[in-house]
């Protein structure tokens, strides 16, 4: 039986159907599988191979090229700290050192409680927030040591649950496939997104007020 949930498996099939060649759906499918498990498991790769008509070795080979796809288990929060030029000039190297000390792991490692994976990353295209950090692909910054510690505490306490989905989830808006959406549907989706966001902001304000 497939490792991917029935629902996800069906969704994968509809993504495959979007492409003239099944194998073109390989990377989107890897992300979707990572959304389910938090990382790309062997079982999921076998499912993807079946769905795209390639071999598991090819799925694994392709996935291994990309830093965003994790072939090993990761923590609940994957903290990627940029050390490229803009961030470096703004102290990201020092921040990395601090982060390693604070978490007790070196870059690439995962804390023993399974909360955090720390990664040193290339430019995250968030130079305006340098030194910049991504948690499960959501931006934070600029951060100093204190700000970083606060971020970790908030994450651990679950305060950012609404902003930071579990690792692997790229988008919480469930796209309906096929992609040929009418402009009105797209507009409706946008409104949905905006509403969700403002509701989250509202909620946060309330909880911050309560503190």
């Amino acid at each position: 039986m497939a490792h991917l949930s029935k629902e996800l498996y069906e969704k994968c099939k509809s993504v495959v159907a979007l492409y003239p060649e099944a194998r073109s759906a390989l990377i989107p499918l890897c992300h979707m599988a990572q959304g389910q498990d938090g990382w790309l498991t062997s079982e999921a790769m076998e499912d993807i191979a079946e769905l795209t008509g390639v071999t598991p070795a090819e799925v694994r080979g392709t996935a291994s090229f990309y830093d965003m796809l994790h072939l090993e288990p990761v923590g609940k929060h994957v903290v990627a700290l940029c050390t490229n030029i803009a961030c470096m000039l703004n102290g990201s190297m020092e921040l990395l050192e601090h982060a390693e000390e604070k978490l007790g792991i070196s870059a690439g490692g995962t804390t023993s409680d399974g909360e955090f994976t720390l990664e040193e990353s290339e430019c995250l295209a968030g130079c305006d927030k340098s030194p910049c950090v991504q948690v499960n692909h959501r931006f934070f910054g600029p951060l100093d040591d204190k700000g970083f510690d606060q971020l970790l505490d908030d994450l651990k306490a679950g305060k950012l649950r609404d902003d930071v989905p579990s690792h692997g989830v790229l988008s919480r808006v469930d796209r309906k496939f096929p992609l040929a959406l009418s402009p009105s549907e797209i507009a409706a989706e946008r409104v949905e997104m905006e509403t969700a966001k403002s509701q989250r902001d509202e909620k946060r304000k309330i909880s911050e007020g309560a503190n």
Partner: peptide, 17 residues
Amino acid sequence: ALIDFFGRGEDTEVAIF
């Protein structure tokens, strides 16, 4: 295709699943 390249750059290796 039971073997493929795994990894990137100098870490590239030929690998099976």
